[in-house]
Design a protein around this nucleic acid. Sequence first.
DNA 1: TCTTTATTGTTCATACTATGAACTTTAACC
DNA 2: GGTTAAAGTTCATAGTATGAACAATAAAGA
Lengths: 157, 157
Amino acid sequence: MNNKERKDHIPDRHVLEFEGLIDALFQCCQERMQYQSERFGLPDAELRCLLQFQNERYLTAKALAGRLNVAKSRVTKIVDGLLRRKLVERTDDPEDCRVKLLKLTAGGDGLAREILSFRREMHQGVLNQFSLEQRVWLLNGLSQLKRSLESVRELLV
Amino acid sequence: MNNKERKDHIPDRHVLEFEGLIDALFQCCQERMQYQSERFGLPDAELRCLLQFQNERYLTAKALAGRLNVAKSRVTKIVDGLLRRKLVERTDDPEDCRVKLLKLTAGGDGLAREILSFRREMHQGVLNQFSLEQRVWLLNGLSQLKRSLESVRELLV
DNA sequence: TCTTTATTGTTCATACTATGAACTTTAACC
DNA sequence: GGTTAAAGTTCATAGTATGAACAATAAAGA
């Protein structure tokens, strides 16, 4: 009997291949972040924090915690690092003394741009190895994969 | 002029979409690992270590360092945790007193099987949301993506 | 107005991930 | 036998992350 045809059954070969690919892709991403971190001389968390200012001139600690998916006490630490490096500045919100407004310094803005353009080039390099048609398929596949992962994750949490 | 047709040029829209998808997928993987870690009551590094014994009855600290991509001093720490939890045992290699052979205890083996089958089910759940045809496309796309990421990474290092 | 309640951000204790240098023990190679 | 190499451990250091306790301030109610 060939159980390839059974409902809801996926050949082991496919699952194994999928697991291997996901693991490899995940590892690639991790290595890329480590590389980025070394290249720009900034711990990964601070680097990610810096990029949050891409479309936002001012951010509060709370907003950063939400965007970075970390506890607010973590944000304090990360921002401390960025302040020490003079990549961000902190000012009191004139409308509410509890909140501190963070914004990039000129140096921080320059560095953020550098990082962004590095990432852009790298991603372009990756996509360049696909033909237009393949690229469209890939983006569709990844987008479906994302939805699928998220829906399976919902079942767990 | 439409630069979609220019050689080596990829529409910004595609790059942005790609960046977003990669980030989201990466985050999903991270969250999955955290969930796994909590579910099985084991720090992530120890959990990953446990799974290395899947096809290997005995492993040395050095071999584990290679498989896990960490320094050997890190392995000492990870194995300490697994020993404390009685998930692995350590014996001296009769042929070379310097090396310690690690192997799973019955409990460790049972836990490893549990983790493996949990992962298997989850991945099956994800793939189940694809038709056979889509699945094949996805696997091909991911595999090409992996090659592409790896080749771009080579240029950096 | 005065009091309670909620919010913002900091500090601190804790835990996990990871590295590299220094060191011990043992094996291997002249 | 003496040097060199390899396997593992220990320790100092750094980064990632959380949650509880806390101070300051704002907002809402009585």
